[in-house]
Simulated scan of single mutants.
Amino acid sequence: MSLITNPTIAVVAGESSGDLLASRMLSGLRPQLPHANLHGIGGKHMAEYGFVSDYPMETLSVRGLFEVLMHYREIKAVQTNLIDQLLAERPNVFIGVDAPDFNFTVEQRLKEAGIPTVHFIGPSIWAWRRGRINKIIKSVSHMLVIFPFEEEIYKAANVPVTYVGHPLAEVLPLEPDTMAARQELGLPLDATIVTIMPGSRLSEINYNTAAFIGAAKILAQRDPSIRFIVPMVGDKQRNAYIEQVVKAQLSDVPVLLINGASHTAITAANSVLVASGTATLEVALLKKPMVIAYKQTWASWQIMRRMAYQPWIGLPNILAREFLVPEFVQDEANPLALADALWKQLHDDKLVARLKQRFLDMHHSLLRDSARESAQAILQIINQSATGK
């Protein structure tokens, strides 16, 4: 139990995946601190635990180096106002959830002012931009990591660290029920189903959707009985874009558009075409074969490829340290290549069985009580700050 019964805890999550991950952390904190003031930037899942978002989370939901530059003034204004607000308020702890480019600046200013800072989900310095460790040392009082191999990286840099497991490993079942998911969506139990997930950010959808839909058209030509599911994010603008593209290009293909319910859409599938990001781990934890693809501006890609330290972009492959599932980036992510890779997964039962076992092993390795582990770490930090120890 915390020595402070009504602390102020500031949290910033920059997108929907961060909102979900932060909500797991808050689910462990709120019962122990029922009167805590929780505010900052977050989404609907965090709001379930009494969190108040001072700014719209969508302001930070921009991906890609040049895309961020286009929204720089708006993002910078929010960051500056938030820093000023928190320096005046002096919360008992600040927790930055992912969004490292935004949160590290906030964390550094607060840490310099003597406010404890926690960063939940370490940035992928093991994949690219290793120089970030120097920024982390200046900005972060304690790092919470979700992959087991990350602990040694931060210990070697003398950054206090706690491995809390990946919250998604707790939320998603070890044995997903494919038939129940198909019944829930009103789909034939014996159908061949491909779920298409071009991304949650508008920039991802803009760049990925054409190739993804093109792959679906090729598969439909090869086998007209294949059905497709496209789970849509909640934002009306994004929904309108996907609906416009899908309806225009797949008017003669059996495709089901659903709002949200991405986990149900994944569970119902035989294979998934997914944009690189957290969704790839969701697909793996739901034990489904997948093809990973990603497209962005040419300039952003040229910069990022020069910063990369490993050959993989998808989380399942990074965790496996091998190309467990196919990846296609930029020009390689063309409709024919994506369709061919999906076609192989749909017709290779031995491959599917092998992937399911590897994904099950991966699930067990990430399974911890992340809500309890993260809450205990944060409570300890608050207590240490209060006692001066």
Results as ranks from 00 to 15, higher is better:
M1A: 13
L3W: 09
I4Q: 01
P7G: 04
V11D: 00
E15R: 02
E15W: 05
D19T: 02
A22G: 14
G28T: 07
N37C: 13
H45Y: 12
M46E: 08
Y49K: 08
Y49P: 00
V52W: 02
Y55W: 09
Y55C: 03
M57F: 06
L65G: 01
V68I: 09
L69K: 12
H71T: 10
Q79C: 11
T80I: 10
N81P: 05
N81T: 12
N81Q: 14
I83Q: 00
D84A: 07
L87I: 05
E89L: 08
N92I: 00
F94K: 00
N103H: 05
G114C: 00
G114W: 00
A127L: 11
A127F: 12
W128F: 15
N134M: 06
S141P: 03
L144P: 11
Y154P: 03
K155T: 12
V159M: 13
P160E: 08
P160F: 07
H166K: 11
V171D: 11
L172E: 05
P176L: 04
T178Y: 07
Q183Y: 03
P188G: 14
V194K: 08
R201A: 04
R201H: 07
S203W: 03
F212K: 09
I218V: 13
D223Y: 06
I226E: 03
F228P: 08
P231C: 15
G234E: 13
Q237D: 11
Q237A: 15
R238M: 10
R238Y: 06
A240N: 15
D252M: 07
V253N: 12
P254G: 04
V255H: 10
L256M: 11
L257K: 07
L257W: 10
G260Q: 07
A261M: 11
S262K: 12
H263E: 09
T267S: 12
A269N: 02
N270A: 13
V272K: 15
V274Q: 09
G277L: 04
T278E: 01
L285R: 10
T297L: 14
R305E: 13
R306A: 14
I313F: 15
G314K: 07
L315I: 14
N317V: 11
A320K: 09
E322H: 00
E322L: 00
V325P: 07
A333D: 05
A339Q: 02
A339E: 03
A341G: 13
W343Q: 15
W343T: 08
K344P: 01
K350G: 12
K350M: 11
L351S: 08
A353Y: 04
A353L: 07
Q357Y: 12
L360R: 15
D361N: 13
S365P: 08
D369Y: 12
S370V: 08
S370L: 06
S370E: 04
R372G: 00
Q376E: 15
Q376R: 14
A377L: 08
L379W: 12
I382W: 06
I382V: 14
Q384Y: 02
Q384T: 01
T387L: 15
G388I: 02
